[in-house]
Amino acid sequence: MTRPALARTAGILCGHPAFRQFVAERFPAEWKDFSDLEDVERAAAVIRTVCEIPSRRELDADPAAAQRFHAKLGFPFNAWRRAACA
């Protein structure tokens, strides 16, 4: 089994209500900035803003962008989710 590309993973995460809740709580100003978008697109816009990328595809092409995703969103989301389940 191959590991999904990070851009695909980010897209899948945007579809999950728990991830959107995390993004809204962790980045309230950015979440508010995109209030005119539907929640899935809003989460994608916050990812692009936080990771400083024009497209989620950059997560697969730019190692620095991937690192920013993991440091600012991926790892913190996993910790947040574990804490919520505890």
Rank of each mutant, 00 (worst) to 15 (best):
R42C: 11
A43V: 05
T49C: 07
K32Y: 03
H70D: 14
Q21I: 08
A18D: 15
C14H: 09
R42M: 13
N78I: 12
E41M: 10
R8N: 09
F75C: 03
G15C: 09
I12N: 13
P17R: 08
L59M: 09
R20K: 09
A66F: 06
I12Q: 14
F69M: 02
A5F: 05
A24W: 11
A29T: 07
E52M: 04
D62P: 04
Q21C: 07
D33H: 07
F19G: 01
L37S: 06
G74P: 00
A64V: 06
V40K: 13
F27N: 05
A64P: 01
T49Q: 10
L37V: 04
D62H: 12
R82V: 14
A7R: 13
A84Y: 03
L13P: 03
V40Y: 02
P4L: 05
A64R: 11
E41Y: 08
L13F: 11
A66G: 08
I47K: 07
F69I: 02
G15D: 10
L13N: 09
V23W: 07
S35C: 03
S55H: 12
M1R: 09
E52F: 00
P76A: 08
R48S: 03
L6I: 15
G11Q: 14
C85H: 08
E58P: 00
R3S: 14
W31P: 01
A86K: 12
A61H: 10
A43I: 05
V40H: 07
P63E: 05
A44G: 11
R56E: 11
G74Y: 01
P4M: 03
A66W: 06
